[in-house]
Design a binder for these strands. Structure first.
Lengths: 116, 116
DNA sequence: CTAAATCGTTACGGGACCGTATCATTCAAT
DNA sequence: ATTGAATGATACGGTCCCGTAACGATTTAG
């Protein structure tokens, strides 16, 4: 079933989650980075630079740079595709899985606290 | 009443909203910037640099820089406090109000599309 | 009236990101 | 074998942001 949100609830939910992330010193990911990270963890693999770039309607260097940064944070991994060695397959990491899982828990918790 | 979200719904909602923002070329705000913007528009004024800094548990320059950037985007405004001219009062703008309102609509729309 | 405290901004060196253009590597087709 | 296309990374100049420290302006305290 679909989730029905009123405007004040939708915005308050986003604010509470964002505030929680900032207050707790989580990585200050941009909307782009977050969309890439969540796509990697939610959509079925394989994920490639070109695929993500066209999915998000951005250039390839944007994806490469985001992967550089999130790779340094160990949120995602990169490995060559043995079948076609031009491709880079983007994968999940333990750290990234924990981050995403925890993030989902924060959303759920803040949604539960929303006033009527 | 509280909103009950399952983990897959919570994460999928965030992904869909983030993807929508990126695809449509909206400003690529960081989590910090978003939390500041939403706090200005959702919490009762007055808002000051020091108040936001302590609310978010970050340093004052972080707030100043975020206000610089979002001010250039005309999402927020700054004016001196006549009562105490050390203070800067942070206010809303027409552009910012439209942005926030539209963002809320995106959240609501994506929540409505969530699979059960 | 002077000294301390407060507020927001700026300075600094360093890192991350931008868009565009170009690159090396790899594969596919002739 | 050679050409062409495709993939991801890199180079470039420029902008934004970081954390720390200092700063000017203003208010408050003694």
């Amino acid at each position: 079933m679909a989730i029905a949100l009123r405007p004040s609830q939708a915005l308050r939910l986003w604010q509470q989650v964002a505030l929680h992330e900032v207050e707790n010193g989580m990585p200050d990911l941009s909307t782009r980075q977050l969309s890439i990270l969540l796509t990697i963890y939610l959509d079925p693999p394989p994920h490639t630079v070109r695929g993500l770039a066209s999915r998000l309607n951005v250039s390839k260097p944007v994806i490469t740079r985001a992967l550089d940064t999130m790779g340094a944070l160990e949120l995602v991994s990169r490995r060559r595709d043995d079948a076609d060695r031009r491709n880079v397959l983007i994968g999940r990491t333990v750290t990234g899985a924990l981050f995403v899982e925890r993030f989902g828990d924060v959303v759920i918790a803040k949604a539960k606290e929303l006033p009527t």
